[in-house]
Design a protein around this nucleic acid. Sequence first.
RNA 1: GCGCCCUUAGCUCAGUUGGAUAGAGCAUCGGUUUUCUAAACCGAGGGUCGUAGGUUCGAAUCCUUCAGGGCGCGCCA
Length: 573
Amino acid sequence: MNIFEEYQKKITFLISKNQKLLELKELSFKGVVVEIPPLEFNFDLSCNICLILGKLNKINPKNLANKIRDLLIRNITDFDEIKVAGPGFLNLKLSNESLIKNINQILNHKKHYGKKDSNNNYNIEFVSANPTGPMHVGHCRGAIYGDVLANLLKFNGNKVTKEYYINDYGVQILKFVESVFLRIREIKYNEKFIPSEDLYPGDYIIDIAKMIIDTKKNETFDSFEKSFEVLKQESLEYSMKLIKSDLKKLGIEHDNFFSETDLVNNKLVEKAVSQLKKDNYVEEGYLEPPKGGSDKDWKKTKRLIFKSTLFGDDTDRALQKNDGNWTYFANDVAYHMDKVQRNYQNLINVLGADHTGYIKRITAAVGALSKKKVKLNCKVCQLVKLYRNGKPFKMSKRAGDFISAKDLLNEVNKDSIRFMMLNRSNDVELDFDFDKVMEKSKDNPVFYVQYSFARISSLLRTLNKDLDDNLSLELKNFKLNKDENIILRKIFEWPRIIETASSKYEPHRIPFYLYDLATLFHAYWSKGNRDPNYRFVVDKKIKNLTTFAIIILIGIVIQRGMEILGVSLPTRM
RNA sequence: GCGCCCUUAGCUCAGUUGGAUAGAGCAUCGGUUUUCUAAACCGAGGGUCGUAGGUUCGAAUCCUUCAGGGCGCGCCA
């Protein structure tokens, strides 16, 4: 249910039926919206239809507005007052009957209020942090973004697979395992570990080494080559365990983990390449040397090339390296072929800012693999800048000097991390202050929203009522004051927030909305402190059923919103 | 050199995909608690929406120019 759509349909239907009467030669409702007018006008709804039709028919929108106004008054009983305003807006005030009808509908829908019915099959790939070490703070933003996007799409009835691509293949894994091996030698045979640029220096490598020594007591670790397979398996397992445990603490669980090694072993790359060859999207050839940065290893040799320029990329891309091995990109193409074959209508990849340059080529690949049937949408999360007490602290690239997700989780609770990481559009940088997010005050939006719900819960306790209790309003006990009317308009907005957030993949709209709603509630609640007439409860009983219904509506929406965000809602604080 | 993102109040940012007098929070200043949770509320000041053009009834929003900041550029992963 969506009040804006409902009235938009009513209005456009009525107008198309009366096209002749209105002397409209042209009729198109593209761009027509019903929305909430600015607060100071004090109307429930506003419609721009006269501006659109006026332009289309080259007539004065205000004159048209007056005609349409009469038409609406005569035919639609839902409106108490209709006013033509500004350049030709129709401002509409709902009658008590229609307000009640809409309120009761929400009270009926309860948990489903705001849902935008949809039935697609989505695959969201996110996090996909390299299994060569623990997750760091930067990964958290994308992780939460992806998870909430999944919640949002599921709320609307879609099927969503949350997927993690494990890059457990290639040179960096070799170096990672080698580092573990050398640490084992260090512990077992006292051979000093000498850090170098290729090796992983972090302390967690020592932990892995210790763990392996512990579980493989008979192993001598004489030769790296001989121990490689077992070391690789153990080390990766350990890393992934760490990553999964951090994710779990953040409230995130993936449905599917896809291994790059499996993909290589199953010859998916060869399959993908031969498919693309058949369609003439891959051929042998030469590439131009890269522009800008100099690449000392670059060689002009014949190799397989994906013609990604056919699908909007800036340049064609190599699928093979100098030595004839597949590139990282080639493996990723194969991975995406697999996703396409699993019959998703929509693929979403959540990437960090440092992977922006990769988007065009992989989008091109999905286009080629699916004959443009499947759309890959890459969403980029910009950097997270860390602060402590308002002061930035830098993470240098030097050994071990980075903040891990674990460090973050040790200091800050899951709820604050999730809310704050989403309290910004994904394509702007985000300042994250370790101290501020733990404040228990209005400065901290998480607490502010949670607190509003705690207050509602407190009220329900006093009244011995529950959010899920059945409730419906009737005309005879309906009395809406100004504050409640404003709150109700905000409540009506909820389905639209869900719709935009999910269609544009912009979950940040939810925390902003919830904050606004909580503000309205706190303001209204506080009125009772100054003016006893505004108190909700007298002698442990609710004074006015309409007021109670409004508060229930707030509770329903805040609960739903926080559930989508994956943030808990204590009933007492 | 090229691509993507950003530029809105002193600071940090929203802005419903072209609408009405551009909105929040922080900071500043001034108020409110024998009370359903003051972990809260109320009020005040603060703007050339980076620049210059264009599109139209109408632009923070769309197009172009330029400037500033961030991320990236491979036959790395």
